[in-house]
Write a protein that binds this DNA or RNA. Structure first.
Length: 230
DNA sequence: ATAGGGATTCTC
DNA sequence: AGAATCCCTATT
């Protein structure tokens, strides 16, 4: 028995859940945020495979976006936002919590999408163990940008990671044998102002760049009334 | 060098 | 309502 894989080797997680291609990410961040709804974020490490369906995401632009980390321009911290699409931007907030973004646009245009909530679907036992005993019902385990990172074992070690490689941390449109596309119908998409960016000047705090799946029990918090379909 | 604050979460 | 807690960013 050699080191080369044989046809009888069990499929890897990346084969069961094929990674989205780079071209999926190369578009304006508001489009990308909506398109990510319904796709599956996956993480695999020595402890196992975990994942869930993305049900909430926020778009962040370049220096012109006064709510974006990129507002100060290219710095060491925000460098991934200025790099190629399809990579992760993972940052530490309040000295405690990791949050994960998906880089969009292109090399010339900085921008990223913050993943704010998942419906947990894969590796529930491991997700529950990582989140702790007081984490509440399953639907709330990944209801928040820092919660989902804790649940999936995402830390800044993954900052800059290439999401298109289909290993360690990646996003899939669905299993190959899945019948339905991950794409949401417009009537299923909620929009609203981004969370926690009241410091932003001008109308940047009010822009409806938060996107969510209508009716999901895993949203980080409710959307304001008067929802508009994207 | 140092001060001010943050795309959050949990507990009191 | 307040703490936890690190590092980024801007200023001295």
């Amino acid at each position: 028995v050699g080191a080369l894989p044989s046809l009888r080797d069990p499929p890897t997680a990346g084969e069961i859940w094929p990674a989205l291609h780079r071209s999926f990410y190369e578009r304006p961040v508001t489009e990308l945020a909506a398109a990510l709804l319904g796709t599956t974020l996956l993480s695999e490490d020595d402890d196992g495979l975990t994942g869930g369906a993305i049900v909430e995401a926020e778009a962040y632009g370049g220096p012109e976006d006064r709510a974006s980390h990129a507002r100060a321009g290219l710095t060491r911290r925000t460098a991934p936002m200025f790099g190629p699409a399809g990579h992760a931007y993972v940052y530490l907030i309040y000295g405690l919590h990791s949050c994960v973004n998906v880089v969009g646009e292109g090399d010339a245009t900085p921008g990223a999408v913050l993943i704010r909530a998942l419906e947990p679907r894969i590796g529930l036992d491991l997700i529950r163990a990582r989140r702790g005993a007081a984490a509440g019902p399953d639907a709330r385990l990944c209801a928040g940008p820092a919660r989902l990172c804790q649940a999936l074992g995402v830390t800044r070690a993954l900052d800059g990671h290439d999401l298109t490689a289909g290993a360690r941390l990646w996003i899939s449109g669905g299993a190959p044998d899945a019948v339905a596309s991950s794409r949401m119908r417009p009537s299923e998409i909620l929009t609203g102002p981004r969370i926690g960016v009241s410091y932003a000047e001008g109308d940047w705090a009010a822009r409806p760049w938060r996107f969510g799946v209508r009716g999901s029990a895993s949203l980080s918090r409710p959307f304001p009334r008067e929802p508009q379909s994207a």
